[in-house]
Computed example of a mutant assay.
Amino acid sequence: MPNSVTRRTFGGATLGAALALAMIGGPALAQTKTLRLSHHLQPGHLVDVASHRFADLVSEATGGEIAIEVFPAGQIAGLRQGAEAVQLGTVDIVWSDFGTLANWRPEYGFVSLPFMFQGDDHFEAVFGGPVGEELAASLKENLNIETLGYGNAGFRVIATRDAPVNGPEDLVGVRIRVPEVPTFVNAFNAIDANPTPMAWGEVYTALQTGVINAVENPAEGLAVGDMNEVTNYLSRTLHIMTDVNLFANGAMMEGLTEEQQAAMREAAATAVDEFNTATREASASYWDELAATMEVVEEPDRAAFQAAMAPVWDDFTAATGDAGQHWIDVVTAAAPN
């Protein structure tokens, strides 16, 4: 990954000092509560960096009362499994996305609709305002999830093994890896590709062996995953915005003291804000890193992709009714003029 994007990007906070030994005969030391944080991305990905930043801030703010252990790369749960585990409380904290949560509440798939968001400013207008607050309340009520922060991991591009992608016709019949998210599957079915849901940890080998012929992800995910070693062409389609949010089990949060809850929320706000800033700054660097070894299509026919994928919106509202249409309406209304 680029040398300019390291944990130093996030301030280099250190772990809080251990509690001092009590005086002889005085009160016993407080017992450390250990929480498990899971994500599906590789060590070194900005999500992993932000996870450790969050853990350090929590430890510091609570004087070591809370320790957060980070499990990257799907060590204890993949993307879908983690989203389910945080609802059940078998994992305390997870980075996940609304498209994955749509497996339990289909209306949340609105975030992953193709070409829903116009850019980073549109993301900020939605998630940093009243819509974000409404979403957080909805998640707490429906899935027992407390939202600690909304992350923007960037807009997605397409890497292929065998031929460049200029328009949707170039993906007809192509086996392309997509996450285990219904909206993604529907989007690539709409252009007659062959979407193949697959855990991220399996993608490199699947491309290497020809099980799949393409993958779509933000540039960072492709670069950190070394996908340029097993693909040859890169197309800047920007077809779906990638949200990756820091979620906590609601019951776990309620079991903390008020001071501990406040420390968790403040630490998350800092870490996720720094993650969003770093992602924006690193986006061009990751694209350039990939472009140095791949044949690049900088300006594919995005209008053709948008038109071809438009039926996915109709299918989504037909399946989710007023609930899904509501979220489309509020996001559309928040678009910058």
Rank of each mutant, 00 (worst) to 15 (best):
M1H: 13
T6Y: 08
T9D: 12
A17H: 11
A17S: 13
L21Q: 11
L21I: 07
A28K: 14
Q31N: 10
K33S: 08
T34N: 12
R36S: 14
H39M: 10
G44V: 11
H45M: 05
V47N: 02
D48K: 04
A50Q: 06
H52S: 08
A55Y: 03
D56P: 03
V58N: 00
V58E: 00
V58W: 00
S59N: 15
S59E: 12
A61G: 09
T62G: 11
E65S: 13
V70A: 05
G74K: 05
I76W: 07
G78R: 08
A83C: 11
A85E: 07
Q87R: 14
T90R: 09
V94A: 12
V94E: 15
S96E: 12
A102G: 15
A102K: 05
A102Q: 12
E107L: 05
S112T: 09
S112N: 14
L113D: 04
P114N: 07
F117T: 02
D120I: 08
E124R: 15
F127E: 00
V131G: 00
E134R: 13
E134I: 03
L135V: 00
A136G: 10
A136F: 07
S138R: 14
S138G: 10
K140Q: 15
E141F: 08
N142Y: 06
L148W: 04
G151T: 05
A153P: 04
R156Q: 13
A159G: 12
A159E: 09
T160W: 04
A163K: 13
A163E: 13
N166E: 14
N166G: 15
V172P: 09
G173Q: 06
R175A: 15
P179L: 02
V181N: 09
A187P: 04
F188T: 02
N189V: 10
N189D: 15
N189Q: 15
P195K: 01
P197W: 09
W200Q: 06
V203A: 11
V203G: 03
Y204D: 03
A206G: 07
G210V: 06
G210A: 07
A214S: 06
E216L: 12
N217E: 13
A219M: 07
G221K: 01
E229V: 01
E229K: 15
T231V: 03
Y233F: 15
L234Q: 01
S235K: 01
T237L: 06
T237Q: 07
H239F: 09
M241F: 10
M241C: 10
T242W: 13
F247W: 15
G250F: 02
A251N: 14
A251W: 07
A251H: 14
E254Q: 13
A267C: 10
A268H: 03
D273K: 10
D273I: 03
F275G: 02
T277W: 09
R280W: 12
R280G: 11
E281V: 12
S283I: 00
A284E: 14
Y286D: 02
Y286M: 04
Y286N: 00
W287R: 05
L290T: 05
A291T: 04
A291F: 07
M294C: 08
E298N: 11
E299T: 13
E299M: 12
P300G: 08
D301T: 04
A304P: 09
F305I: 09
Q306R: 13
Q306T: 04
A307V: 10
A308D: 13
M309A: 01
M309H: 01
A310D: 12
V312W: 01
D314V: 06
T320D: 10
G321Q: 07
W327C: 00
I328R: 05
T332G: 15
T332E: 11
A334P: 12
P336F: 09
